[in-house]
């Protein structure tokens, strides 16, 4: 049985004085993959950051795994660790002396007040498994500053996978991956959704991929323009209304 993982009601978010997201409502169930599409500057990243508590909201309610997210972005630690987030622009300072192993290990369990070596064995095992899952085991001892864009994305995905989650939020995650890695990435998301019942919310600009892999689409341009299955939400008429231009669709095979 599907359960509600995320509920957003009448959400309005400002970026400084600019109203970036206005009166958006939707909900997400476990075992589903929902994509947010829309033009640049349409408020997609703002919406996701407000859901995570990175940006404060002006009004509206956000409920994650049955618990309301407070105005200051507080959510109990046991729920926080069930959410994973892969940001759009992850710029690693190349001078940070941190290995891939260490970064992925930071995704494991909660981050509170604890001895640094607590649960070291369990954590190491989980890190190895996560890296193997994204085909990045060979990178484990590399410094994160020396990774390519695609490798960084795979390592960040391992950071998300290292601990059992219920909600995975991705901001243009496959950008920077090659065709093979992108295909593996979507296969992995499918497994997480089908086998482990994760709810996935991802921002994407690749409408063909959205059509192929997602169950539901939210069309955002400052406000929610439409939502529904890819067939409905990505129809030429909906897209023309969303992007403000006439849309002609071309399909490609991958």
């Amino acid at each position: 049985m599907k359960e509600s993982v995320l509920t957003v009601e009448h959400l309005t978010v400002y970026r400084e004085t600019y109203k970036a997201v206005q009166d958006v409502s939707f909900s997400l169930e476990s075992g589903t993959d929902t994509s947010i599409v829309g033009p640049n500057g349409g408020g997609k990243t703002t919406l996701v950051q407000a859901i995570l508590g990175i940006l404060p909201r002006h009004s509206g309610e956000i409920t994650i795994l049955g618990q309301p997210l407070s105005r200051k972005g507080y959510l109990p630690a046991n729920l926080r660790q069930q959410i994973a987030y892969l940001p759009q622009n992850f710029l690693v300072d190349r001078r940070i002396p941190m290995t891939v192993n260490e970064l992925v290990g930071l995704g494991w369990d909660k981050l509170g007040f604890q001895l640094p070596w607590a649960n070291h064995k369990k954590r190491s095992h989980a890190v190895r498994s996560a890296l193997k899952r994204v085909n990045a085991s060979h990178l484990k001892d590399q410094l994160i500053g020396g990774l390519s864009g695609g490798e960084t994305k795979r390592v960040l995905l391992a950071y998300c996978l290292v601990y059992p989650r219920r909600l995975l939020i991705l901001d243009e995650a496959p950008a920077g991956l090659d065709i093979k890695a992108e295909s593996e990435f979507y296969d992995l998301l499918y497994q997480l959704k089908q086998e482990q019942d994760w709810a996935i919310l991802q921002i994407s600009h690749d409408l063909n991929m959205v059509r192929q892999h997602c169950d539901r689409v939210l069309c955002i341009n400052r406000t929610l323009r439409c939502q529904g299955t890819p067939e409905v939400a990505l129809s030429p008429n909906s897209l023309s209304a969303l992007y403000g231009t006439d849309f002609v669709q071309y399909h490609h095979s991958h």
């Binding site: 950051q49 995570l52 508590g53 990175i54 972005g73 507080y74 959510l75 630690a77 926080r80 660790q81 959410i83 994973a84 987030y85 940001p87 992850f90 690693v92 300072d93 940070i96 941190m98 260490e102 970064l103 930071l106 909660k110 981050l111 994160i144 950071y159 939020i169």
Partner: peptide
Amino acid sequence: MLLTVDESLAIARG
């Protein structure tokens, strides 16, 4: 460590 790497990742973890 997480704060030093990326603040948004840290905030997302509470």
